[in-house]
Design a binder for these strands. Structure first.
Length: 569
RNA sequence: GUCCCCGUAGCUCAAUGGAUAGAGCGCUAGCCUUCUAAGCUAGACAUCUUGGUUCGAUUCCAAGCGGGGAUACCA
């Protein structure tokens, strides 16, 4: 293969490498029209080598001649690209940097029209119909209601929320779901922990075993427990009383979680799905019957197993334990049945802590059993390690050593917390130093980006004063449009937003949002320093337009990240 | 043992197989009589090791070293 690279820092895009956005496609189309011999492969377009030859033997010119594409010099090639593409999109010029690179420069007039388009499209700028209105269920956080949300849950909460925002922009219909494990042994243990604490407070000599939850929130629940008729403690009574208070305690935990997510950090869910409801509606039993019908169940050592190995899992999995209790995996299968057969979602994105990575195999096996293979994307999100005084602190709900999401947000604010977590690739192992986060929250890049927005608002305020003072006078317009490098740099970033949205909708790489926001802010700050919008009595209205476009893009990015756009700082 | 993730600047992180590897913080030197200096400009500092694939590797493959996680009839 011969690879011709059409790209360049100044020329906006690497076109040979990736044809994912509209501009790329237009350029590629032009190239195809020029040279029908060129064909597309997955990463580049090119032609086959003559046998026995290597690319290194040739310059672009020689290679193209060999391929029979053109019989001209590289400069002439660049020229023909310019002419052809100048008609469809605004290409000003192109140049050849041999061997193998052709740079393409966009016309400033075309760039200016893009600015106007951004302003007129407003929040719709960046929106596309890539997703064809497909309904995607996104499950994220879904932390057990046996303790408050931790730092680590924050990572999933913010990432999942931002991903849904992006999917929405890309034309999908995301459905945010929090699956509540409100049944099973964990809930019993929580209730028991509270009860034991309660009795301890009543002066009853009661031990507190290791399997119980140690956290301060258990104390809090115990303090607020109203339990007049069950003062006596005994092994038999414990279970009876526990079951009496279970529902109340669970409700309290869940409402606490909801409060933090919705009120505190602004992550709203479309559905808080109760695991218990899967049993109540009979769906779990139906699921079991279905699996039995498919002859995928067998009994061994008193337990009921599912033959997941037939569908690529490492080993078969227990669905019902020897003691007769079902395992979460069972309701998880029922949940997928519900999502794909009853709700008819076309896809699910399941954001899962990396400590659950072993769960993937059986989940995908379950999807295959349901005949829905390929519809479940599991996104593993690496754990957050908490450092205190340079030492790692193992976060554990059971032992009560953790930092809650609420604490963090109280310390640094929602914007800083969101931005901080969104900066990291899901695959990155984050070390989180709370002391440092408190101390350094002022250094958070979110303020750098927000500051750009505040500066824009300041200009706009000034501008409205200016126009009020000059009522009736004709606004001065610059006839000659010669863009400063800072202006071009800014525009080039702004028009990348739709491409970025599409990219993230495909790759789920939400952390690119923060990189992009920072880049736009940098370009704006440079522009701000170098180019004046209001200069004495002169207003440059083209720059006003550019500033408005920048504000719009920043607001759109902020909205996707769930970060506020302050008008003053 | 097996499986998953990570290893890039002093620190925290970026970089669809492409040109001179980028930001922020920290460090050095400059810039406010003009739209917010939470800013701008310049400078110093980096791809864990060894092989392989490729015209080209931070990126893909293999082995090694180092760190984290998982290996339940817990979730």
């Amino acid at each position: 293969m011969v690879y011709f690279l059409f790209n360049g820092e100044d020329s906006l895009y690497t076109i040979a490498m990736n044809f994912k956005d509209q501009l790329h496609r237009k350029i590629l189309k032009t190239v195809y029209a020029l040279w029908p011999q060129v064909r597309e492969s997955s990463f580049s377009f090119g032609v086959d080598y003559p046998p026995g030859h290597k690319f290194g033997d040739y310059t672009t010119n020689a290679a193209m001649k060999l391929a029979g594409i053109v019989h001209q010099s590289p400069m002439t090639i660049a020229e023909s690209i310019t002419v052809a593409m100048g008609k469809t999109i605004g290409v000003r010029e192109s140049s050849v940097v041999a061997p193998g690179f052709i740079n393409i420069f966009l016309d400033e007039k075309w760039l200016s029209t893009q600015v106007e388009e951004i302003v007129s499209k407003k929040t719709l700028f960046g929106r596309s119909d890539l997703g064809e209105k497909k309904r995607i269920v996104v499950e994220f956080v879904s932390a057990n209601p046996t303790g408050p949300l931790t730092l680590g849950n924050g990572r999933a909460a913010f990432g999942g929320d931002a991903l849904c925002n992006i999917l929405q922009l890309a034309g999908y219909r995301p459905y945010r779901e929090y699956y509540i494990n409100d049944i099973g042994n964990q809930v019993n243990i929580l209730a028991e922990s509270v009860l034991r604490r309660y009795w301890q407070h009543q002066g009853i000599n009661m031990e507190f075993p290791d399997y119980c939850y140690q956290g301060a929130y258990v104390e809090e629940l115990a303090k607020n427990l109203y339990l007049p008729n069950y003062k006596l403690a005994s092994a038999q009574k414990l279970e009876v009383v526990r079951d009496k208070i279970k529902g109340r305690i669970l409700a309290k935990m869940i409402s606490g979680i909801k409060k933090v997510l919705v009120k505190k950090v602004g992550v709203r869910y479309d559905k808080w799905f109760s695991e218990k409801s899967l049993y109540a509606s009979g769906l779990v039993d139906k699921m079991l019957a279905l699996l039995k019908e498919k002859k995928l169940l067998y009994k061994s050592e008193g337990a009921i197993w599912l033959k997941t190995t037939q569908y690529g899992d490492d080993k078969d999995r227990v669905l019902i334990k020897a003691d007769g209790d079902p395992v979460y995996f069972l309701s998880d299968i029922a949940l997928r049945y519900h999502r794909f057969f009853k709700r008819k979602f076309s896809k699910e994105i399941f954001i899962l802590g990396a400590d659950h990575h072993g769960y993937q195999g059986r989940m995908q096996a379950a999807m295959s059993i349901l005949g829905q293979a390929g519809k479940l994307d599991i996104l593993l999100i690496q754990l957050v390690r908490l450092l205190k005084h340079g030492q790692e602190v193992r976060m554990s709900k059971r032992s009560g050593t953790f930092v809650t999401l609420e604490e963090l947000v109280d310390e640094v604010g929602v914007d800083a917390a969101r931005y901080f977590f969104l900066m990291y690739d899901f695959n990155t192992h984050m070390d989180f130093n709370l002391d440092l986060a408190k101390k350094k929250s002022k250094d958070n890049p979110v303020y750098y980006v927000q500051y750009a927005h505040a500066r824009i608002c300041s200009i706009m305020r000034k501008l409205s004063q200016f126009t009020a003072a000059n009522k009736g006078k004709k606004p001065h317009r610059n006839a000659a449009k010669v863009l400063e490098p800072a202006e071009i740099g800014l525009i080039k970033q702004l028009i990348k937003w739709p491409e970025l949205v599409a990219d993230i909708a495909r790759s789920y790489q939400v952390h690119k949002l923060t990189s992009y926001a920072t880049t736009v802010a940098t370009e704006f700050h440079t522009f701000y320093t170098q180019c004046r919008v209001i200069n004495g009595k002169e207003v440059n209205y083209d720059r006003v337009m550019l500033v408005r476009a920048t504000r719009q893009v920043l607001q759109n990015v902020f909205a996707a990240m769930g970060v506020s756009a302050p008008e003053k700082m």
